[in-house]
């Protein structure tokens, strides 16, 4: 796997009061999304107020974990000791509509297609944290 454990661990995400639920979900192996409890609009990154109806009432909901690839890149320089050379970063569009940055795993750059279906999984970080990752999803 492209996320084999390097000598130095990937840094833990440091969330805010508004995003703590998201990273806590990652530690449980669940991709969490934030939705307005009044108008139902999804939003990412998390924020305290719904930008559509200004409600501060919100729901933290388990997402499907299905996404499509919006864009990707392979950082080459500078090398980072906590990441395996060749690691890929990716922007994914979730089935529920939000876009987020992550890593794209288990695929070689040659096989990547923008729009390809992806599924979420999780890896551990330093300090007992966890983050979401994406890999190609077999058509079901």
């Amino acid at each position: 796997m492209s996320d084999a454990t390097p000598a130095v661990q990937r840094p833990a995400p440091h969330g805010s009061r508004d995003s703590a639920f998201f990273w806590e979900g990652c530690r449980r192996g669940v991709l969490m999304g934030q939705r307005c409890a009044d108008c139902g609009a999804w939003r990412h990154p998390p924020r305290p107020m719904c930008p559509h109806c200004q409600s501060v009432e919100r729901e933290e909901v388990e997402l499907s974990g299905r996404a499509t690839l919006y864009s990707w890149a392979k950082p080459v320089h500078p090398p980072l000791p906590m990441f395996e050379p060749g690691y890929l970063i990716a922007l994914v569009d979730l089935e529920e509509g939000q876009r987020m940055l992550s890593n794209l795993c288990d695929v070689s750059p040659e096989a990547i297609e923008i729009g390809m279906p992806l599924e979420v999984f999780f890896v551990e970080t330093a300090e007992g944290g966890a983050v979401h990752q994406f890999r190609p999803r077999q058509a079901s």
Binding site: P45, F83, Y87
Partner: peptide, 14 residues
């Protein structure tokens, strides 16, 4: 920074 660094997206170029 919160949504970038944990994925190794750490420089302006990335």
């Amino acid at each position: 920074i919160e949504w970038s660094l944990p994925f190794g997206s750490a420089s302006p170029a990335a």
